[in-house]
């Protein structure tokens, strides 16, 4: 058995082997970078024309980045709600001469802000992200490991939430119709979940310390965190996307 047989592929290597749009070759840091950069650009979206241009450029690039259109659609629902609620409040409170145009501009601005993050999220692997944050950005290793380990508890905690809320329903303490009753129900269930989280964390830290986590000043990593050409390209594209609204403002006035 050779060493290369022993070391499993990284998430990026898996994606690269699978085939798909070019973004699949990118690692987590460039994915995050290209998601965050357009946020800065979106601040420059002041008119609906600029917003439309910026969004159009993003939409043109979409085929290079989407991992399954069917999976993308449900992710767009909360985004749409967020954008529309902002647009509506602008129409209501913006005090602009043309409230409709202002509302459309703010809807487009939110779309430009969130769309890259929503599309690229599909490629992001949390534990691979941890590897890269610690090995490339040199964030504190133990904090990164604790965070990725905690993420593994997400479904157990979601299940605990279900059982906690079932217990409240069975005891005659379920959420009623009124807002006060719902707030009380949510607060009580959330408290139970936090108790569960704290107990779970105490047991986890015992298990982790028994495996040498307690005094791991240095630490090696089972998987490498490579930076590829594709990562550089994606980061540059992200920066260009951030510049689009600025350029469009200059050109369109």
């Amino acid at each position: 058995m050779s060493v290369t047989d022993l070391v499993p592929p990284t998430a990026t290597q898996d994606r690269t082997a699978a085939g798909g749009p070019p973004v699949r070759r990118c690692g987590p840091l460039s994915l995050l970078g290209a998601s965050v950069l357009p946020v800065a650009g979106s601040l420059a979206v002041d008119t609906w024309r600029v917003g439309a241009v910026a969004l159009a450029v993003q939409l043109l690039l979409l085929p290079l980045a989407v991992r399954g259109w069917r999976a993308l659609l449900p992710r767009l629902v909360p985004v749409t709600i967020a954008a529309v609620s902002v647009g509506w409040s602008t129409w209501l409170l913006g005090g602009e001469a043309d409230p409709v145009a202002a509302a459309v501009a703010s809807v487009l601005r939110i779309a430009v802000l969130v769309l890259p993050g929503v599309v690229l999220l599909a490629w992001l692997d949390p534990s691979e992200t941890g590897d890269h944050l610690a090995q490339r950005l040199h964030l504190p290793a133990r904090a990164v490991v604790a965070a990725t380990a905690a993420l593994e508890q997400l479904s157990a905690l979601a299940q605990a939430w279900d059982e906690l809320s079932r217990a409240r329903r069975a005891r005659g303490l379920g959420p009623g119709r009124g807002p006060v009753s719902r707030v009380r129900w949510a607060a009580s269930t959330a408290f139970g979940l936090l108790v569960e989280a704290l107990r779970r964390a105490a047991r986890m830290s015992v298990a982790m310390d028994a495996r040498g986590f307690a005094d791991a000043a240095g630490r090696s990593w089972a998987l490498p965190a490579r930076w590829a050409l594709a990562d550089t390209v994606l980061l540059v594209v992200g920066a260009l996307l951030a510049a689009v609204p600025l350029v469009a403002t200059a050109l369109l006035g």
Partner: peptide
């Protein structure tokens, strides 16, 4: 479940 720290068994 308390001892699980990673997404894959090998990790």
């Amino acid at each position: 479940l308390d001892a699980v720290v990673a997404a894959t068994a090998g990790r």
